[in-house]
Design a protein around this nucleic acid. Structure first.
Lengths: 125, 125
DNA sequence: CTAGAACTTAGAGCGCACTCTAAGTCAAAT
DNA sequence: ATTTGACTTAGAGTGCGCTCTAAGTTCTAG
């Protein structure tokens, strides 16, 4: 970059998001980017703010175990425009339930692990 | 079973634990069972209470994303006897940290998802 | 103008945790 | 005694989400 520019190269975007460049390309190939990442003055990708913001949200969906295929469905809805906001809301609400269930299960498991830890600490076998 | 017996067949154990018979055999092959599952009056497996209790704890470790390889290490320590309780405690404490981190990340992600849900509800884009 | 680094694509490869298959053995009920 | 269904093993196959490779192109610095 010669001039100050709001957009980032793929390696800069990787650094910003904590993903690898491989993963960023993979996500794009899989149709997970909202509008297609721009190509500037060449074939090279340029990530603008909206791209980064979306990748960050996408990362939240992944970290709560939303499958790639479900994210693709969500993206397809976004692309179809404002009329799909009820469907998007529904999709997120359904996902929310799975996240709550995961948190609940993990919390219960943590309790069991803590109990086991306490038995080791007390030396009671 | 003709007589009342405290032990279970593999399919009964599967039903009790919520795992498949395939998975129970897989775990055994991978060295994740504490003492080797007994074989009664034939080559058929018989799961006693201690086996079921262990499988249930093992399931907690798995549901908190402990890798099979780490569980195998833990099992190896248990097999070595009481002298390894400090090492087991250490292993569980380390794992505990990863669980807390997972819970934290998932909770943060849930907050982001909830925020997005709220924007859809307010219709503000 | 040139060298080297960073980028491009298409597609192959990998690690994990199962999950299933095939071919055969065993046991409970008739 | 026979049938039916559950069980056995070893090993192959699957699905997911990356992760890497190869061969070629483009940008930047000197």
């Amino acid at each position: 970059m010669t001039l100050v520019d709001a957009s980032l190269s793929i390696s800069e975007a990787a650094e910003r998001t904590g993903l690898s460049t491989h993963t960023l390309r993979y996500y794009e190939r899989e149709g997970l980017m909202l509008g297609g990442v721009g190509r500037a003055s060449s074939t090279h990708r340029r990530y603008v703010d909206a791209d980064i913001t979306w990748v960050e949200f996408l990362t939240k969906l992944r970290s709560t175990a939303m499958p790639i295929s479900r994210i693709r469905e969500y993206v397809a809805l976004v692309r179809q425009g404002d009329s799909t906001t009820p469907a998007r809301l529904e999709l997120l609400l359904r996902h929310r339930e799975t996240v709550v269930a995961q948190l609940d299960e993990m919390t219960r498991s943590l309790a069991a692990i803590d109990y086991k830890i306490s038995t080791y600490r007390k030396g009671s076998k």
